[in-house]
Design a protein around this nucleic acid. Structure first.
Lengths: 210, 210
DNA sequence: TGTACATCAGTGAACGCGCGTTCACTGATGTAC
DNA sequence: TGTACATCAGTGAACGCGCGTTCACTGATGTAC
């Protein structure tokens, strides 16, 4: 009996691609059990191996969660960049697009989003996790800088623009995931992107509105 | 041996105020262990009673966490209202004050804030938890309505103003708690309230800025 | 191409631990008379 | 004021469970010759 797992093949005894399979299983475990109910044994069972097998690939639970957070951060960054690539245009539309991408990722991957931003279990000093996280941040910095026409990080007002935009998308994502926006339910159902857009428009750096 | 616990007194065998003592112990447990490491036995030990004692006051762990979330939501609402009372003025300054109160509570009570907004363990349908939560929401709705001069909930743009303000303070609070604002560290250290203020100013409904 | 052998990546039994829950109990308190 | 008794709010031992971790093992793979 052989079965496909990525590029490799299971050959009875040896799995062939257990590391990747464990990451997939961990994501599923996180989705179904939440970070509070996440166990290594559960992940192993999901991947179809004995509960001692993961030790050959991950030192402990935290090590596995760090690797999963790295996968998440990479997907997160790519979601934002892809959303920008899909709607090229001026600095304003790029700003809006990355914000929509931020929220799109959070809604499509609430468990991974919570792992990255709401848990202390992954190791934040890990290079593979922190690098894509930093690159996501730099997408936002660039958007704000392009709108302002200066290096936003160098000025108090530029940093305030960055903070405002980041806080808005982050809070919006969290409130949506937590299901706290019942007062907006009808708007979201009618036009989700448009509803999010109305909020994003209010924090475009330098914009005037009325 | 007697010892003060609220209004009542421990008399050797009977505690005298165990329910309140358990809530205090649960808050401490949550602060030190996080929601992931929160256990009923830990709470009982902290309160100085046997691990079977809490059963006389709380059905199970979820019941205790719901009661704690109710305490948190009440304190949260009061923090916002007190901050507004301390700085009376026009609608704009009331809006800013409640936002500052929102973030003040989150920074002073990160564990309780996480319990209210980031966990699924408390029972959200509980009246004692949902009522003060709703009242907090209505503080924000009133602030926006006063600034707009209409019933904000009745219009798409009003709801977008509410969403924007709530998302901003909520995201800012979460990012501060998670320690993700290292790029702002110097600003926050120099003038925390002022730094937060600069973000809040950007989402005052109807405001123009440049 | 075949054989010997080292290494790798699994298995499954066993361990000690802390958890929530149950249960018979007991000490303290409140009430009826 | 005293006594009897019901009720309340604790104790502590016991339970079964799932957890992470360890360990001797074994099957599969890769390499040297």
């Amino acid at each position: 009996m052989t079965e496909e797992t990525g590029q490799r093949v299971r050959s009875g005894y040896h799995h062939g691609g257990l590391r990747e399979a464990l990451l997939l299983a961990a994501e599923q475990e996180l989705i179904e059990k939440g970070i509070e109910g996440f166990t290594l044994r559960g992940v192993a069972k999901r991947a179809g191996v004995s509960h001692a097998a993961p030790a050959h690939h991950f030192r402990d639970t935290s090590d596995l969660l760090t690797a999963l957070a790295a996968v998440a951060a990479t997907r997160f960054r790519d979601t934002m960049k892809q959303r920008q690539a899909k709607s090229p245009g001026d600095a304003r539309s790029q700003f809006i697009a990355s914000g929509q991408g931020y929220i799109e990722f959070a809604l499509d991957n609430p468990a991974l989003f919570g792992l990255m931003f709401g848990s202390r279990r992954p190791d934040f000093s890990s290079e593979e996790f922190s690098r894509p996280s930093f690159e996501s941040f730099m997408v936002l910095v660039k958007d704000v800088a392009d709108l302002r026409g200066d290096n936003a990080l160098d000025h108090v007002e530029g940093r305030a623009d960055i903070l405002t935009a980041w806080s808005l998308v982050h809070g919006l994502a969290n409130l949506l995931i937590a299901g706290r926006l019942r007062f907006l339910e009808a708007d979201l159902k009618a036009d989700r992107d448009g509803t999010i857009l109305r909020a994003l428009e209010r924090v475009v750096p330098g914009d005037r509105r009325g």
